[in-house]
């Protein structure tokens, strides 16, 4: 099977087969990062633009490392270093990037749908590295990879997600990804953080965090954005932690072999207790490691030999 998608914009636009292919390719890529010389020539001569309109450290670094390990030339432009601060429109910026013939544009933007707008205008492959509160497909894919690595499967697992679902692109993509691959996703949060029509996303809404994590195979905690207190979503961090923070008591409700995930950055003591974040159930750092391999797989599939035959990865 050949990978034919030009762009990776969201999970919804990927089929089960395509997701499996990405995950399999990523597993193969992982070994490259463990070699003494962490570099293969696969994407030599390819240009990858990291176009980050929104601040990002981990995701950008992860894409950058992934590009370099495949020998692609990667260059980063951020909002402050680009003409966007001079009032250039997104479409104009993209047209200018296109004129320099990049092979892949990795894009993060504060507006939902911005990568979709650009993907229609450029020949380069567009990989969405997070758009507004819409999607963060590479994060969801690395989460799938990390769970599959630990559990050997996705199908039939209970995934408990707790946090601000309304404003989280990670939550949207994870819900889409895990349900698509056959897991059961249950979410919990203060109702101010649950968007209208949540069930249309394919998940269940738990009455409280306890019933959400009960018998869960995976607990995923989302970062509480402290600046959102101004948006009247919750009264304060102390109360949030008492109702929706992951502590030892709640962790004990889950399956014995539960894994705990978090897309980072952590608010220790708010959505997750420190000893759990650092404890034996946590696979938070595996997520980061797998992120590089997963993004190498995405580059390979959209820009490299994957177009012809992914099985030879």
């Amino acid at each position: 099977m050949a990978f034919t998608k030009k762009d990776i914009l969201d999970i919804d636009s990927l089929s089960v087969e395509e997701i499996s292919m990405i995950l399999n390719t990523a597993e193969g890529m992982k070994e490259i990062s463990q070699r003494p010389v962490k570099k293969v020539p696969t994407l030599r001569g390819k240009t990858i633009v990291l176009f980050f309109q929104e601040p990002s450290t981990r995701t950008r670094l992860s894409f950058d490392v992934a590009a370099k390990r495949l020998s692609a030339d990667s260059l980063a432009i951020s909002k402050s270093s680009s003409s966007m601060v001079k009032g250039e429109t997104l479409v104009d910026t993209a047209k200018n990037l296109e004129a320099m013939s990049p092979d892949v544009i990795v894009m993060r933007h504060s507006s939902s749908g911005a990568p979709h707008l650009i993907a229609k205008r450029v020949k380069a492959s567009v990989i969405n590295a997070g758009d507004g509160i819409h999607a963060h497909p590479s994060q969801a894919l690395l989460d799938l990879m990390s769970v599959k690595e630990k559990k050997g499967r996705i199908e039939g697992l209970k995934i408990a997600i707790t946090g601000d679902i309304s404003h989280s692109r990670v939550a949207r993509s994870d819900i889409a990804g895990f349900t698509k691959m056959g897991a059961e996703v249950v979410v919990s949060a203060p109702l101010t953080m649950i968007p209208k029509g949540i069930k249309a996303l394919g998940c269940k809404l738990a009455d409280d965090m306890e019933s959400c994590v009960e018998n869960a195979d995976v607990i995923m905690m989302l970062r509480i954005q402290k600046e959102r207190q101004g948006a009247m979503l919750f009264p304060g961090e102390r109360e949030y932690a008492s109702l929706f923070g992951l502590n030892r008591k709640r962790l004990n409700l889950a399956k014995k072999d539960v894994v705990v995930m978090h897309p980072g950055p952590l608010n220790r003591g708010v959505e997750i207790d420190s000893d759990i974040a650092d404890g034996k159930y946590s696979i938070i750092l595996n997520q980061v490691t797998n992120g590089v391999a997963l993004r190498m797989a995405l580059f390979y599939l959209v820009a490299g030999g994957g177009k012809r035959n992914a099985d030879k990865a």
């Binding site: 758009d131 509160i133 819409h134 209208k196 029509g197 249309a200």
Partner: peptide
């Protein structure tokens, strides 16, 4: 505000 906005990640007007 509704299902489509939730899916698209667009802030809604109820």
């Amino acid at each position: 505000e509704g299902i489509t906005a939730t899916k698209l990640g667009i802030k809604g007007i109820p």
